[in-house]
């Protein structure tokens, strides 16, 4: 028996539309009229869809086919009141906080916080290094006056300070290209970063760490993942502390067969044109989603205008 208000409203589109599953998700769109305000509501529900193959023994399978609901469970149509999935994610927490190396509490939020902390610590250290002239730069103040009023990317600040002629950033970039990174030691981690593509989806950051750690100290491994599905997008960045190590890794692992695919390595920021560099940049950022990637592209092109 239905109340008159429940009758189908002819002005509404068909009850529900479920799209075919795409990228592991499926959206259901339904329309309804709010009983309170009378407004038409469009409800879009996105559901994660995946299939899982599980091996069960014959006895279990035949039992699951045989068994019918009985007792109090027989009458119930919806199980929602009885069996519910917890809303919050429960992790196995570590009771001894100082001993965090268990690989146990892999809370993404926590990991992110840790990364951020590490990032800020690094920023601070760099600032101090610049201030106290740790790299042996002759006159850090000069670099400051050089870049007066202009934004200098952190990666190029060291180079600026080491060149005595303040000929603008384009000149700096040329200088960096000329030096080729062989004889010059700059603490720019992007210059020691390898862009590794054609990685299989199952590869994790840990695997990459394992793969690359033999060549020298790694400062960072970044595996690009889809923001929604958290699946690997098939490329990663590996930053080494020393450029020579990165070069070694590049030579050794170029075309290396890893997990049924052939790795392709290249420098994260090739020493080609600046436009290229911008392109790389955007791709690097695109892990955060499309809208943001376009944003950064604009920003980067804006920044490259500045340097001209």
């Amino acid at each position: 028996m239905s109340r008159w208000a429940d009758a189908d409203d002819p002005s509404l589109p068909p009850a529900a539309y479920t799209s075919p599953p795409q990228n592991g998700r499926q959206t259901t769109t339904s329309y309804s009229v709010s009983s309170k305000t009378g407004q038409k509501l469009k409800t879009v529900k996105t559901v994660k869809v995946w299939s899982e193959v599980r091996k069960v023994n014959k006895r279990v399978k035949s039992r699951s086919e045989r068994m019918k609901r009985f007792g109090l469970a027989s009458g119930e149509e919806e199980q929602e009141n009885v069996t519910i999935q917890s809303r919050d994610v429960i992790t196995i927490e570590d009771p001894n906080i100082e001993n965090t190396g268990d690989g146990e509490a892999e809370d993404p939020g926590k990991a992110l916080a840790g990364n951020l902390n590490a990032f800020w610590a690094k920023q601070q250290r760099r600032q101090l290094e610049r201030k106290y002239d740790v790299n042996g730069d002759p006159e850090p103040e000069a670099s400051a006056s050089d870049g007066l009023g202009k934004y200098v990317p952190p990666g190029q600040r060291g180079a600026v300070s080491s060149t005595s002629s303040g000929g603008g950033l384009a000149a700096m970039a040329d200088k960096i290209e000329a030096s080729g990174g062989g004889d010059k030691k700059y603490d720019d981690r992007d210059a020691n970063t390898i862009r590794c593509t054609n990685i299989s989806e199952e590869t994790t950051e840990k695997d990459l760490q394992e793969l690359f750690k033999d060549f020298g100290r790694i400062s960072r491994v970044y595996l690009a993942k889809d923001r929604e599905t958290m699946q690997s997008r098939g490329f990663a960045f590996i930053s080494f502390v020393h450029h020579a190590d990165a070069q070694n890794a590049m030579d050794a692992l170029q075309g290396y067969g890893y997990d049924h695919l052939i790795l392709k390595l290249e420098w994260a920021r090739p020493s080609g044109g600046k436009g290229d560099a911008g392109g790389e940049r955007t791709e690097f950022r695109s892990g955060y989603g499309k809208a943001l990637a376009q944003d950064t592209k604009e920003k980067v092109s804006f920044a490259s205008n500045l340097t001209k």
Partner: peptide
């Protein structure tokens, strides 16, 4: 992990 709560009892 997201545990399943069984509330039958």
């Amino acid at each position: 992990m997201r545990p399943i709560l069984l509330k039958g009892h």
